[in-house]
Structure formats: C-alpha cells, structure tokens
C-alpha cells in the first residue's frame, strides 16, 4: 500500500515536471513580451506590464503587420489550393483499386521525405529568372511541395476510417459516384478535412527555410522576421518575444480548438 502511494505521488510529480518543462519557455516568452527593455534583461518577475513592445514592432522600421499579412495570405492560399486537391486524391487512393495506384501513392508519399533544401535550390534559380523572388506567389508554390503529400496522407487516413456501406447503398439506388462524394463522403470526412487544413496551415505558417531564402523585404513572413531583431546593437529580446507572441497565439488557438481531432490526426496517417 505504501509503495503504491509513493508511486501515485511520483507519477503526479513527473507529470507536473513535464508540464513545467513544456510551459516554461512559452510563458517566459509571453512575460518578456510585456516587459520594458530594462526589465527584459533582468529575471525579476516584479515589473509593470506594458504594451509598448507590441506598439514598437508594429511601427517603422519593423512593420510586423506586413509580415503577419504575408504569413496569413501565404498560409491561407496554400491551404485553399492543397486541401481540395488532396481530398480528391485521398478519396481516389482510399476507394479505388486501379492500376498504378500503389506506385503513385508510393511516389507521392516518398516526396514527403525529400529535404526542403533540395527543392528550394532549383526554385531559387527559376524564380530568379522569372523575377518572382521576394513574392508571396513564390512562397505559396514551394509550400505546396511540402504540404500536399502530407495532406493527402492525412485525409486518406480519415477517409479509410469511414465505412463504405452507405456509399454502396446510395449507388445501388442509382446515385452517381460524384453525387455520393458530395452528399455522403464529404460531410462525413469534414472533421478530418478541417483537421488536415489546420495542420497544413500550421506547417505553412511556421515555415522558415523557404521564406529565408526566397524573400528579402516585401514578402518576408513572421518566422523570418524574427531574425531581423538581431541588430548591430545586439539581440532585441523584448521585441523578438513580442513578435514570438504574434506567431504563437493564432496557432495555439487553432491547435487547442481542434485538440481532440488534432491528436487523432497526428497518429492517423503514420500508425495505421
């Protein structure tokens, strides 16, 4: 009995410790974002919170607003292109047994494992010739490369889990395949598709390498914007933290909103 109690407390102690390790860096960033510059360089928790860092990062010369806009546009358009295309492909992979299906699925899956730096080299050269460097279009195109295979994989996992009975019944009643997809499969797969969309949004929103190489001034996204707070006067931590809060908050809200599906979506593709 005594051993059991020790174990009971030990388990809780470990969980509290894990929670602290997870939360501490995030909390510290949030605290720093609300500190005045002189407080940011002290460890004191006794400071009067201020919004001045947010005012600073949103005004000249940092103009974080432009970066928020770039990030939001790039991520949304990427999702709007990738998810519909991927959903159709996922349905096809999930329901039809046609020739070449295995090969195509293997081909698409394996592209997910190609390092981003390999893709970005030729794109840099092509965009340079086309005059598309430092544009949002360039970022959307390269992000599609990373996101599309991933989303196909995820949505296929969700569609696989939907039983085919009602589809078959509707087809016997004379409904066409496209009608079945629109009226039966789509509504049932909606939570899965929403989860995949948010996943896709998060990946694109956080994407760093492409934006670092392909943008300079006009199309800079938030993660790359972080680097600009490294100045000749040293790193401006309080401003970096304010920018960090701007990167994190929308994503955290999304992740927590779909928390249940989120964990299922994470495991759906890979474990199955």
């Amino acid at each position: 009995m005594n051993r059991k109690r020790i174990y009971w407390w030990g388990e809780r102690a470990v969980l509290v410790l894990v929670s602290c390790i997870v939360l501490f860096p995030i909390l510290w960033m949030f605290l720093t974002a609300f500190k005045r510059p002189k407080d940011a360089y002290s460890l004191s928790l006794d400071f009067s919170p201020t919004l001045s860092n947010f005012v600073t990062v949103f005004s000249d010369p940092w103009n974080l607003g432009d970066m928020v806009l770039n990030s939001a546009i790039v991520a949304s358009v990427t999702v709007l292109i990738a998810v519909p295309c991927a959903s159709l492909a996922a349905y096809s992979f999930s329901r039809f047994r046609v020739r070449g299906r295995k090969f195509l699925f293997f081909l698409i899956l394996s592209t997910q494992f190609i390092p981003a730096v390999v893709i970005v080299l030729p794109f840099f050269l092509m965009f340079r010739t086309l005059g598309l460097l430092d544009t949002r279009i360039a970022l959307i195109v390269v992000n599609l490369a990373i996101v599309t295979p991933f989303v196909i994989w995820m949505i296929k996992g969700f569609i696989d889990a939907i039983p085919t009975d009602s589809e078959e019944a509707a087809m016997i009643d004379g409904a066409s395949r496209l009608r079945v997809i629109k009226d039966i499969v789509l509504p049932m797969a909606a939570p899965g598709i929403l989860t995949s969309s948010i996943f896709c949004f998060i990946l694109t929103w956080n994407e760093f390498l492409f934006a670092l190489i392909l943008t300079r001034r006009d199309a800079v996204t938030l993660p790359v914007g972080l680097v600009s707070f490294r100045t000749e006067r040293g790193d401006l931590w309080e401003l970096m933290s304010a920018a960090g809060v701007m990167i994190t908050v929308p994503i955290f809200i999304m992740a927590l909103l779909i928390q249940k599906h989120f964990t299922r979506g994470m495991t759906a593709g890979a474990v199955k």
């Binding site: 096809s92 039809f96 046609v98 893709i119 030729p122 092509m126 195109v141 599609l144 490369a145 599309t148």
Partner: peptide, 28 residues
Amino acid sequence: RDRSLAYVLLVPAFLIVLATTLYPLAYS
C-alpha cells in the same frame, strides 16, 4: 466510369506534386 474517375481525381494533386517536387528535383 469509376475507372477513369479514379485517375481524374488524382490529376490535380498529381500536377501539384509534379510541378513543385518532381520537376525541381530533376532540375537540381
């Protein structure tokens, strides 16, 4: 027919993968 539909549904995604991954890979 289902058979052709299976491929038609794959076309958009496959074009994306072709243009954004396979072509750049060949180029590099």
